[in-house]
Write a protein that binds this DNA or RNA. Structure first.
Lengths: 210, 210
DNA sequence: CGCACCCTCCCCCAAACAGGGGAGGGCTTT
DNA sequence: AAAGCCCTCCCCTGTTTGGGGGAGGGTGCG
């Protein structure tokens, strides 16, 4: 059980060689598949030892890594997929993570850290390159994510109160305003964000659509 | 410019000594403050070289690290704070990250990785211990978050309707129930999740506390 | 069998919310 | 000076929520 089955999916022959060569020599690591495309990987899956960890390049020709991810997770629900790429844009990161990637490493990652990441995910952890982690964390900072455009500064404050689940009355107290004033701002916020009310607003916020 | 000013806030004398001793010897690292409490740290800030990175223990007596974090970020907006703790619970992680932590390391982290983390954040990255990263990533998977325990199956369905921002009437239609029935389920969901109503429920969901 | 739990539906009522209107004062831009 | 936006407050109404009660039928367990 100490042997960890690893699959590598990477189109660049040189990188593929480097990776498989290095990782193959690591004790406890068993490189069971080395594929040049997601299609090959999926096709060869039934014939190979099921991998515990898949190292997946995002920039693949044909079926991209992003498209392949859900398919892989579907076939191997228990496997951990580490995504490896040069791309650092928030969209790709978000998509990869929401599709079940257990790690997101940039191609600049040294081989030793790559190996570390593999054993981290195998132990039930996750691994992110520092700059990727920074982007992920910025999602959690209220100041960064909750910034709908087009709202006046007062409306921003009222909006934050709404997100915090406060009643109009409480927002009024927090901001030192009259209830009716808050009511007006709230109505304007609804119009500008084109929601029908608090509940739709919060529901969208809960699902990251704001 | 190559010298990185570091502050350490840690109540355990032994850990404090270990950290400061090790980090002090690293080239390019300049340990400018070593404090046993957040209060000391804040008090001594004006007299010291402003740190670029703060290593902050969460389990401090008096002002906890979680409480101190916003204060530190307020005084040193450009500094990166790495939180260090034994705690691995989602609430604490979420709070620390939303209050601006640039890293979240468990106390089990080896000193060498600690140093790596410090230079990572100094370069504009972030660093998370693998198990923490896993929890953070699970936030991005839609399927994982919406599964509150203790709800009956009907209540689960009603709960999903609530998250989707539906009114009782709409939930009733979706599930083919009477309005009053939905009303009852909704009330039970509130009680079980201990929220005062839809708005608190959605507000918590929006902030990942559910 | 009794008990607990769930699902279903009903009544009542106070509070909050949504949406519509208006109105005065300030501020910048044209 | 006029127009436009923002902030402040007030009026009205109907609908929705939230919280309390009860009640009948189902299922499962000891």
């Amino acid at each position: 059980m100490n042997s960890l089955n690893l699959a590598i999916v990477e189109d660049d022959p040189e990188v593929r060689w480097l990776l498989s060569d290095y990782l193959h020599r690591q004790p406890g690591l068993n490189v069971v598949m080395v594929c040049e495309s997601a299609e090959h990987f999926l096709a060869e899956l039934p014939d190979a030892l099921p991998p515990h960890v898949v190292l997946l390049d995002l920039g693949l020709p044909g079926l991209s890594g992003l498209e392949a991810l859900p398919l892989i997770k579907q076939r191997l629900p228990k496997a951990d997929v580490i995504v490896q790429t040069v791309f650092e844009d928030p969209d790709r990161i978000y998509l990869a993570l929401s599709r079940g990637a257990s790690g997101y490493l940039l191609k600049s990652t040294p081989l030793a850290q790559m190996q570390q990441a593999i054993s981290d995910v195998a132990r039930g952890g996750s691994s992110l390159s520092p700059s990727v982690a920074r982007r992920v964390l910025s999602h959690f900072k209220p100041g960064t994510s909750h910034h709908p455009a087009g709202l006046s500064s007062r409306e921003q404050q009222v909006f934050e109160g709404l997100i915090d689940g406060l009643a109009d009355k409480e927002i009024a107290q927090r901001l030192g305003l009259g209830l009716e004033t808050v009511h007006t701002h709230v109505k304007n916020v609804y119009h500008k964000l084109r929601v029908s009310g608090r509940i739709e607003l919060l529901s969208r916020a809960a699902r990251g659509q704001l």
